[in-house]
Lab assay of single mutants.
Amino acid sequence: NKASVVANQLIPINTALTLIMMKAEVVTPMGIPAEEIPKLVGMQVNRAVPLGTTLMPDMVKNYE
């Protein structure tokens, strides 16, 4: 099973992601793959992301 990106803390709306906000975890359903973490740094979330939430592509602005 591949790990996904999971919020390590509450991430407020429009916050630019940093490494300490994210962790890799095997979850179902899968979200953004953990190997994308370096690419996510500096990208903004378009909603508040609660602690423990799996990051999905539609939660990150301009994620492709």
Rank of each mutant, 00 (worst) to 15 (best):
N14Y: 04
T53F: 09
M56D: 10
P29L: 15
M56N: 08
K39W: 04
P33I: 13
E35W: 03
T54L: 04
L19V: 07
K39L: 05
M43P: 00
P50A: 08
M59F: 14
N1C: 15
V41P: 08
V41R: 10
N62K: 12
N1Y: 14
A16C: 15
N8D: 11
P29C: 14
I20S: 14
T54Y: 02
A7L: 02
V5P: 02
N8F: 14
L51Y: 06
K39S: 04
E25S: 09
E64Q: 15
V41L: 06
T18E: 12
V49R: 06
G42M: 05
V5R: 00
P29D: 14
I20C: 15
M43H: 10
G42E: 10
A16G: 04
K2A: 15
Q9W: 04
K2P: 15
V60K: 01
D58I: 09
Q44K: 10
N14I: 05
N46E: 06
A7Y: 00
T28M: 13
P33R: 05
P38Y: 13
V5H: 00
T54V: 08
A48C: 14
A3F: 04
D58K: 09
N1F: 11
V27D: 11
T28W: 02
I13E: 12
N62S: 14
M30A: 06
N62M: 10
I32M: 05
E64T: 12
Q44N: 06
N62H: 14
I37Y: 02
A24W: 12
P50M: 11
A7Q: 01
I37G: 07
T18N: 11
N46D: 14
A48R: 12
M43R: 11
M30E: 15
N46P: 04
E35C: 14
K2D: 15
V26P: 07
M22T: 04
I11K: 00
E25Y: 03
I32E: 00
V49N: 01
K23D: 11
A7R: 00
K2Q: 15
K2I: 15
N46K: 12
P29A: 08
A34F: 15
T18P: 01
D58C: 15
L10G: 12
A24D: 13
P12N: 09
I32P: 01
N46C: 15
Q44H: 11
P57R: 14
L40S: 01
D58M: 08
A16I: 03
A3D: 15
R47Q: 08
P29Q: 15
M22G: 01
L51I: 14
G52W: 15
V6M: 14
K23C: 14
A3G: 06
N14W: 06
V45K: 00
M43L: 10
V49S: 02
N14F: 11
L19Q: 14
M22L: 12
I20R: 07
M30H: 15
M56G: 04
P33Q: 05
T15M: 07
T54E: 02
Y63G: 03
S4H: 02
L40Q: 01
A48N: 08
L10K: 09
E35H: 04
A3V: 12
T15S: 05
D58W: 03
K23I: 05
G52H: 10
E35D: 06
A16S: 12
E64G: 14
L40I: 05
V60S: 01
G52T: 04
I11L: 10
T18Y: 04
G52K: 05
L17I: 03
V49K: 00
G42P: 01
P12F: 03
V26F: 07
V27N: 10
V45M: 09
V5G: 05
I20P: 15
Q44Y: 12
P57H: 12
A16K: 08
T18W: 03
V27F: 10
L10E: 12
M22Q: 02
M22D: 01
P57M: 14
V60I: 14
G52D: 15
L17E: 01
E35P: 12
I13R: 08
V49E: 01
K61L: 10
K61W: 11
P38H: 14
N1R: 02
S4C: 10
P38V: 03
I37K: 05
N8A: 09
E36F: 08
M56F: 09
V45C: 07
L40D: 00
T28C: 15
T15A: 07
T28F: 08
N14Q: 06
T53Q: 10
A3R: 02
D58S: 10
P57N: 04
P38I: 06
K39E: 03
V49W: 02
N8L: 13
A34L: 03
V26E: 15
Q9L: 06
